[in-house]
Write a protein that binds this DNA or RNA. Sequence first.
DNA 1: GTCTATACATCGATAGAC
DNA 2: GTCTATCGATGTATAGAC
Lengths: 194, 194
Amino acid sequence: MADSVAKRREEKIAGIVACAWTLAQEDGIAGVSLHGLARAVGMRQPSLYVYFDSKHALYDAMFADGNRQLLEHLDAVTFSPEPREALKQWLHTFAAFGSENTELYQLLFHRPIPGFTPSPESYALAEKVLGDAYTLMRAAGLTEQGDMDCIVAITAGVTDAQISNDPGGDRWLRHLNRLVDLLADDAIARGRTQ
Amino acid sequence: MADSVAKRREEKIAGIVACAWTLAQEDGIAGVSLHGLARAVGMRQPSLYVYFDSKHALYDAMFADGNRQLLEHLDAVTFSPEPREALKQWLHTFAAFGSENTELYQLLFHRPIPGFTPSPESYALAEKVLGDAYTLMRAAGLTEQGDMDCIVAITAGVTDAQISNDPGGDRWLRHLNRLVDLLADDAIARGRTQ
DNA sequence: GTCTATACATCGATAGAC
DNA sequence: GTCTATCGATGTATAGAC
């Protein structure tokens, strides 16, 4: 094929990014060095510049890849036809994935690299995640921005608490459904009395 | 006085730590360098070792100082005699202080320095903060650990969302009281039907 | 496309004069 | 207690041979 060269290059980049995630899991996102990453994929540090113009370009590729992983993971789940149930399942899937992929979650939602801002193309993927969440919330009857903000804060709070205080467990995750139900019931009751 | 030497030393250390917070606000906690900090307080980098045995010792002093600032700030507020109201006031004061002192909040609750663990003496201050929160929750009728975990997650989620998405505003903070009321009402209703 | 070699910067930490 | 000088490690990035 005419694009086999480009394809092999894309696959190589994907392999490097995957390896970078492994290193990030050990030493944190900021702990990934180009020397270490190059050695881990069997090359020397300057050779990485064939695939990434700078270290920020590597972070940008990881940011985009992390969002793609998250979207694929959410896409692979079959959700209930009942909107409230589907929302709870989506949020729980999101929080569980974040708890199990802490470095990915931190790069996507905590911006731990000073000076790094995702490119517009990469950021569009992050906005798709949030947009999907908003769509499910509206389907479940949450129309006020304030209510949706509450859902976002609750989900992030549960995920972060799970990561920080009980890694690998479910001490905080198991309360997410209850909290979402509480907020959704209250939001809908408010809407009725307005 | 016989302790005037020790006192001047303590004051100098306090000044250095205060200056470190200022630098952290500009470049992040991890961006504080001993060279930069020394210059900012009018000395050279090796002289800092007179006051701190290592960089981790500096972080430990900042961790302890941050908890002391937080405790003092909470101590200066007069809370309602009504337990539920007092709890909401305390949590809102906590979240607002965290939102306004983001680097302090991150050092205390997000552990952004790989390899840094607070000393037991410093950590005791952090446990006092959490202990105060638990005391207020119990007074407000929240006795189950799961309910208290929910309050912790909600408060942290609101604070983090405020810092990340609307620095300086109150888009997320303003929902904290409502969320705490929702959870507390539900927890107490649960308790009654058990 | 990968390599060696190196430039250049930053950082934490230590030695030793004053 | 503060300084100069320096070590040693680490890091990103570039130049140029192959």
